[in-house]
């Protein structure tokens, strides 16, 4: 029994923490267990979890995408411009937005895989490109009063005040889990993350697979940008930002991902996001300084990195 609980925790630590945290919060924090608050919580969860799924697919091979947040902003403002200035139909607008994201991911992937430039540097740089582009095409202004046809896609209430986008996000988490653990694509990523040399000598097209994971990241970032626009009701170049991928990495770490690659559970990551959002929510409800949240994120990532280094040092002494 003890062993079973332990393995349950190891495999699903994030789920356990999320539940425990929610119970503690509902006892100690006034208004936390209020149904409206819980629904808000899920709405706040819906966007970052997309980035988290994307980052999961990168972390598994030891990669990262720091441009994802800025890409959200670029997609958001492009969406706004297409809807309001060029007056394109919503479907075309969504299609082009997702295309922008994917192409941007393809660019990242090609630079990283075929020019062999470290993902950290590549995506840091390309993120600023996205940010600059977003500022230029928008003239640093945001666009409000987006058409109903667009807004209702994500905001139509399904159960209570829970809008469609929460269910879309949940579906994408499920899809992500399926791709990661039940397809050859996920399996190959896992091979690469654990032993890239063996993959090269085993006929696995390492570069192509990695490149696909960056395209996927761009695509999901675009989707996150669209969701964010729908939620806030305004298309702005500043949506997303640098904090977003950082939050996603933190969530992945909480979910049990190894930062050095090889293992990255999607469901764990999704609950990692939930843990972060519960924490943020409590900080808001208790009227504590909100910047504490950012510091908390940093502490979690920092501890994870230290743990990782200690672990690999232990392996090295073998």
């Amino acid at each position: 029994m003890k062993k079973f609980l332990l393995s349950l925790y190891m495999k699903n630590g994030a789920i356990v923490i999320a539940i425990v945290l929610a119970i503690i919060a509902s006892v100690l924090v006034p208004n936390f267990s209020n149904i409206n608050n819980l629904q808000t919580l899920l709405k706040q969860w819906a966007t970052p979890v997309l980035i988290c799924v994307a980052i999961n697919f990168l972390i598994v091979t030891g990669g990262i995408d720091l441009s994802a947040g800025y890409l959200c902003g670029l997609v958001s403002i492009s969406c706004g411009l297409m809807l309001m200035v060029y007056e394109l139909p919503v479907s075309v607008c969504l299609l082009i937005s997702i295309l922008i994201g994917s192409l941007f991911g393809l660019f990242n992937g090609c630079v990283i895989c075929y020019l062999q430039i470290p993902p950290f540097i590549t995506t840091l740089g390309s993120g600023y490109i996205a940010y600059g582009l977003a500022q230029i095409i928008s003239g640093s202004r945001s666009i409000n009063h987006l058409p109903d046809a667009f807004m209702s896609l994500g905001n139509t209430r399904v159960i209570g005040t829970l809008p469609t986008m929460v269910f879309f996000s949940a579906a994408i988490v499920a899809l992500g889990w399926f791709f990661m653990s039940r397809t050859t694509y996920g399996r190959k990523l896992e091979y690469i993350g654990n032993n890239e040399k063996a993959c090269l000598l085993g006929g696995i097209n390492v570069n192509r697979i990695k490149c696909i994971s960056y395209v996927q990241s761009g695509l999901l970032a675009a989707l996150a940008g669209i969701f964010l626009t729908m939620r806030t009701g305004s298309a702005a170049p500043t949506l997303g930002g640098a904090g977003m991928p950082f939050e996603a990495v933190t969530a992945c770490v909480l979910g049990g991902s190894a930062l050095a690659g090889g293992f990255s559970p999607i469901i764990g990551g999704a609950f990692g996001v939930l843990i972060l959002k519960i924490t943020e929510n409590c900080i808001n409800l208790l009227n504590i300084e909100t910047y504490i949240y950012d510091a908390l994120l940093a502490i979690v990532v920092f501890m994870a990195i230290v743990a990782e280094v200690l672990k690999s040092r232990k392996l090295q002494t073998k």
Binding site: T184, E190, N195, A198
Partner: peptide
């Protein structure tokens, strides 16, 4: 250069014929 040591036998034997 050969094994993926963190993974099980099943994943290793099917690696080249996935």
């Amino acid at each position: 250069e050969g094994l993926v040591q963190q993974m099980d036998i099943k994943s290793n034997t099917s690696m080249c014929v996935l």
